[in-house]
């Protein structure tokens, strides 16, 4: 596929942007004194690729009818999400200073809400985003618009039963413009995910349910871009299982439950920045 061959410079540019957004995520979490660094860092490459290499949107007109949509089903990763939205121009960079603060100008609450420009729906209670994304994707078909709807889920999140309800529904309606991505960082809040409930083999599960399934290294920018740019399947919804590392990029955060929902201290923040230079 000549047309989808990646240009090396683009990959490098996005890798740099992802690093920049990792730094920014940690910065605002550190500033706020609370937040979820681990899952923001694991999802950084995927979300960077989506917003700066894949999705079609106009941040100066965030409600444009034919825009591609993104639903952060793992709603706690706002450190990353808001950093990305600001970088994409949905609101002023200075707004990030009010992250998690009362009267935040762009409503940068701990979890997303549609009052924030660029956010489609409130999330934060796990398990709901895939259904919401599916509803949006169904609307695209009703309106004869060809936008895609991307939903980012956590691997812990897929233990919620509703995820499987939505998994069945999207197959029933042949919702091929729905693209779900699992940030498979293998670590949840109080345990590693497989000790809570081991849902591997993930590909087999979604394939059996009737999805078009891909598994990639969620930190390999070329791979991430390539899979996100694949033409849609003729009828199946798409599931991308992205293997990632919780806390990716900051050695002392990697693979740790302890960095799920804790802001770094001044010292840890400085150490982390050095690693992300």
């Amino acid at each position: 596929m000549e047309s989808t061959r990646l240009v090396q410079s683009e990959v490098e540019e996005l890798e740099l942007k992802a690093k920049h957004l990792r730094r920014k995520s940690l910065k605002i979490i550190h500033q706020a004194g609370s937040g979820h660094p681990g899952g923001s860092l694991s999802a950084a490459d995927i979300v960077t690729a989506l917003f700066f290499g894949v999705m079609n949107y106009d941040s100066s007109s965030p409600k444009k009818a034919d825009r591609d949509r993104f639903v952060l089903s793992k709603g706690h990763c706002t450190g990353l999400y808001y950093s990305v939205l600001a970088e994409a121009g949905f609101f002023a960079e200075s707004g990030l200073n009010d992250y998690r603060k009362i009267d935040s100008e762009y409503f940068l609450s701990g979890h997303p809400h549609p009052k924030t420009p660029g956010v489609e729906i409130a999330t934060g209670s796990l398990g709901q985003g895939l259904s919401v994304a599916h509803g949006i994707a169904l609307a695209a078909k009703l309106d004869n618009l060809d936008y895609r709807v991307y939903a980012l889920l956590g691997d812990g999140e897929i233990q919620e039963g509703q995820v499987w309800e939505a998994t069945m529904s999207a197959v029933k309606f042949n919702t091929n413009n729905l693209v779900a991505i699992i940030d498979n960082n293998k670590v949840a809040q109080d345990n590693i995910t497989k000790d809570l409930k081991d849902l591997e083999p993930l590909e087999d599960k979604w394939r059996t349910f009737g999805w078009d399934v891909h598994r990639i290294d969620g930190h390999n920018m070329a791979e991430v871009l390539e899979v996100l740019r694949l033409p849609l399947h003729s009828q199946k919804p798409r599931m991308i299982i992205a293997d990632t590392i919780k806390g990716k990029g900051v050695s002392f955060m990697e693979g740790q439950t302890s960095w799920h929902g804790v802001a770094p201290s001044d010292e840890d923040y400085q150490k982390a920045l050095k690693e992300l230079e």
Binding site: S131, I136, E165, A166
Partner: peptide
């Protein structure tokens, strides 16, 4: 649960 959230998604459009 899926129905209610699917409805929410449809409503956003």
């Amino acid at each position: 649960a899926d129905m209610v959230c699917t409805a929410a998604g449809l409503a956003t459009t």
